[in-house]
Nucleic acid binder design. Sequence first.
DNA 1: CTGAAAGCGCTTACAG
DNA 2: CTGAAAGCGCTTACAG
Lengths: 365, 365
Amino acid sequence: MSPSGPEPFPATMPGSLPNHTGRATSADVARLAGVSRTAVSFAYNDPARISAATRGRILAAADELGYTPNPVARMLKAGRTGTLGVLLPQDITQVMQNPYYAQFFTGLGQVCEREGMTLLLCPPLRNSMLKVIPYAAVDGFVVAGLEADRGEVAELRRRGVPFVLVDSEPPDDVPSVETDDETGGYELVKHLLDLGHRRITFLLFESGPDQPRIGYRGPLGRRLVGAARALKECDLALDAAGISLVEATCTRAGGYTATLSLMTEADRPTAILAFSDIMAVGVLDALQSMGIQVPAQVSVAGYDDQPEAEWTRPKLTTVRQPTEAKGRLAGDFLAAAIRGEDQHPRQRLQGTLVVRDSTGPAPTS
Amino acid sequence: MSPSGPEPFPATMPGSLPNHTGRATSADVARLAGVSRTAVSFAYNDPARISAATRGRILAAADELGYTPNPVARMLKAGRTGTLGVLLPQDITQVMQNPYYAQFFTGLGQVCEREGMTLLLCPPLRNSMLKVIPYAAVDGFVVAGLEADRGEVAELRRRGVPFVLVDSEPPDDVPSVETDDETGGYELVKHLLDLGHRRITFLLFESGPDQPRIGYRGPLGRRLVGAARALKECDLALDAAGISLVEATCTRAGGYTATLSLMTEADRPTAILAFSDIMAVGVLDALQSMGIQVPAQVSVAGYDDQPEAEWTRPKLTTVRQPTEAKGRLAGDFLAAAIRGEDQHPRQRLQGTLVVRDSTGPAPTS
DNA sequence: CTGAAAGCGCTTACAG
DNA sequence: CTGAAAGCGCTTACAG
């Protein structure tokens, strides 16, 4: 029984659009060609089993009627869809603004290519990742950005198709791909501390729609654990004086706005660490517009090493994440699971600190 | 009859993965709960029609068996899929590298959100846009990057779902969204000519896989028509001395490599016009690595006005294209067509010349 | 309030 | 080489 009592399914398929009709079926073609539906099917799927003449008649009839085999009916019969699903934590609009996903999809795309499959983007339905799961016609899911499991794993199990968790806290029997975010967070903060910074603001990205914060979990949480470890080595902590946590949306604008208000406060930080490059770009913009020198007055760091990190001036110090490899691995694991290879592989990927020009010694005041 | 004789369908669904089985069906649930399949269906789709007690028994049974209604069977019954298809001219890998598509999908994503639909990315199957059309379980297609129609439109018609053409040369009875690429090409080249440039190289992006060039068509062709018009006003032409056309892949690397070989030739251009910003970024990289000043020695322009255009140093002169609006409009038109509103709307969007810092007066030699 | 039956459109043993 | 029949898993008039 589902936790909150079984949620009634919507009376119709999701999506507010009605259906269209009037298509020719294999029966129509069979009638016009004077053969059985079996023959029509053979004409498409197993031409060797009927005579060339019959096939010709059938295809001519099909052409006259504008017939194409219905793909959904084929899927039902075949028991497979030929499509990979990606379960997304945010709407497509937001996902597409984030270069992280472009890299991730690039990796997934390689698998689609190899397997000859299509890719179905599954954003939350009515604000819920849970609700889209039963409706997606896919052979399996790659689950991206599931921070805290709010029943999604149970729903995925019940759905009965294989799935791979990416950067979550996966149960033991589920294939998964993870990144060592804790070490990344540690190294980045240690780098700042080594440069003498003691007043640091962490810019955190908000997570999915129905995911109110209860503590910090997922990749962000693990980065903060690493950050705390580095701080502790200097007798600091996340709640120490001078250290602050600020939330913003994971966009350039989010980083921009946050920085503007941040830098007008009394106790300015000497370093800003944005946990996504795209936010860090906004931070740089804001500082430039305020006439604040980077890194002379304020150091800035990002996370992910997206292409943007090299285009900013100064170039961005960040942690390189193997995002594309993550997508490819997740796709590989999923393809293997769909194939019925029932191991549950796990892979843990490493990040690398990339020091560029946006971080420097803390200003001596 | 298809032009080259009807191509035999593959014997199985595309995709090399077999199917998985063993799921519980509504019949299993009905048996366990001691009711009919009708009742099971009602439990999910129309709870009011059965008693609370019956519903409870059914859902308990469903839970015990790990039952979820099969989405493909539902689709078949409903005659609709709740998903929008995007027909892509290139593999997902390449599409995701191109920021143009991120913007385009952002617009499409807004429509998906509003309609509660998922988005199916349909790259060419075995190198052919044609082949994927019959297999995609979608309520309609947005067709991106179809330059020359090689039967795709006929196949789409035959497929029987609505579709919207973006930046193609659409037949009269097909909904479409276009951009005024000719004017864009004209304005950009006129800008360069006004600055005194007479030796200009045009960097053209290659199109899809099975699309060998026969002349230039599509948006690129129209930009070149505009370019030719501007040239003509100065008594020049695309095949005049000093004017050259070079092809490259539509990536940063493509622009980089092309520029390297370009600038080692005897008759160097004083201006390079890349018909995609992402290529222009590569051009700037290459020139910087060769120690060539922009725009003092060579002017550079792009096309699209992707976010990157503002991040380069110098900032890129380009033509702003309303890419996101294009995606949104295409989605809107498709949604309307699926809904059965059987007009065939067309919209023509304008571009805008955006002059930044990468273009300047031609050097006086 | 509940169930037997038909049907969505296809494919595939099986029998001829 | 060809066809009648069963079945993929669901939903929905229709009848009780």
